[in-house]
């Protein structure tokens, strides 16, 4: 139970096999939609079901390129633009804010910190109607801008709460050494502190991206034209219109997962670090 002692021999083999079995059970849903997306519509409904596609069918992916209304690659691009926009806003605003909170004891600091903490808990239902009115007033309704601005409100508080710990852990001496070398507050922040906090900035960027990528409510409510909507809203609409066309739907789902899978493969350590810092999803 201690976790430190390395297990060897027969027990090691048994536990390893058991863990792989657990993995297969828990990740089966993902395997299953990947396989389904490569089957023909007839094969999907076959009983007994085939596990591996009998004949590899890529038509569900290819068809999406051509169809106008539910072009999943267009939706993919929309989602990408929205997510990158939201990530940029989150990081640009959260990096200095978390530094300020970590390193200075100014008036109102606690109130601001509390504000950021509380916004993490807000249900989207509270914000939808007033944001809808706000974006209409700003002439941003039905533009990617609305979704970008709304999605950033999830990334900012999360990023600040994560990053403030990174900045707080940087010793004062490093900052002071920068002053002695002729830096002022702002150049010390940019040249010395941000590079040290880089892993934290990565965590923030990744989570801000993932939050925006997974958003449905904002993208669906603030953007009305299907051609401009993010991929999650695309899937939802597609389900409404062609509810049982599972070959297309699962292909849509697989494409939506691709960026998430890539992030996971290349940046797993940041994800664990972000999750353990108390991330509330959505």
């Amino acid at each position: 139970m201690g976790g430190e002692k390395k297990i060897t021999g027969k027990k090691n083999v048994i536990l390893s096999i058991l863990s792989v079995v657990l993995l297969c059970v828990l990740l089966f849903p993902l395997f299953w939609i990947l396989m389904t997306s490569l089957k023909t519509e007839q094969e999907i409904f076959r009983i007994p079901p085939t596990i591996i596609p009998e004949k590899l069918n890529l038509a569900s992916y290819a068809a999406q390129v051509e169809t106008g209304d539910f072009n999943m690659f267009q939706s993919f691009a929309n989602s990408f633009i929205i997510s990158i926009g939201a990530t940029l806003i989150s990081v640009i605003l959260a990096v200095p804010a978390s530094y300020g909170i970590a390193k200075y004891r100014f008036r109102g600091r606690k109130v601001m910190l509390l504000g950021f903490l509380v916004t993490q808990m807000l249900p989207v239902a509270v914000l939808l109607t007033p944001m809808f009115i706000l974006f209409r007033g700003m002439n941003l309704y039905n533009t990617p801008g609305a979704a970008i601005l709304a999605d950033a409100t999830i990334g900012i508080p999360f990023s600040i709460l994560i990053l403030k710990n990174y900045f707080a852990s940087i010793p004062r001496d490093l900052e002071e050494a920068a002053y002695i070398d002729g830096c002022n507050r702002f150049s010390a922040f940019i040249r010395v502190l941000i590079p040290i906090a880089k892993p934290g900035v990565m965590v923030c960027a990744i989570f801000s991206f993932l939050y925006a990528w997974g958003d449905l409510a904002y993208g669906m409510t603030f953007i009305i034209d299907q051609q401009k909507r993010p991929i999650t809203a695309g899937i939802f609409n597609f389900m409404g219109q062609y509810g049982t066309k599972w070959s297309y739907l699962t292909a849509f789902a697989v494409v939506t997962i691709i960026p998430v899978a890539l992030i996971f493969i290349f940046m797993q350590k940041y994800i664990i670090s972000g999750m353990t810092s108390g991330a509330v999803k959505g």
């Binding site: 657990l22 849903p29 993932l210 997974g214 789902a253 996971f264």
Partner: peptide, 18 residues
């Protein structure tokens, strides 16, 4: 095993609907 947590919820919903 962390993967399910990262998947967009819309996709998870679709998977379970299936």
């Amino acid at each position: 095993l962390l993967i399910p947590w990262m998947i967009p919820i819309t996709v998870t919903a679709l998977i379970f609907k299936f």
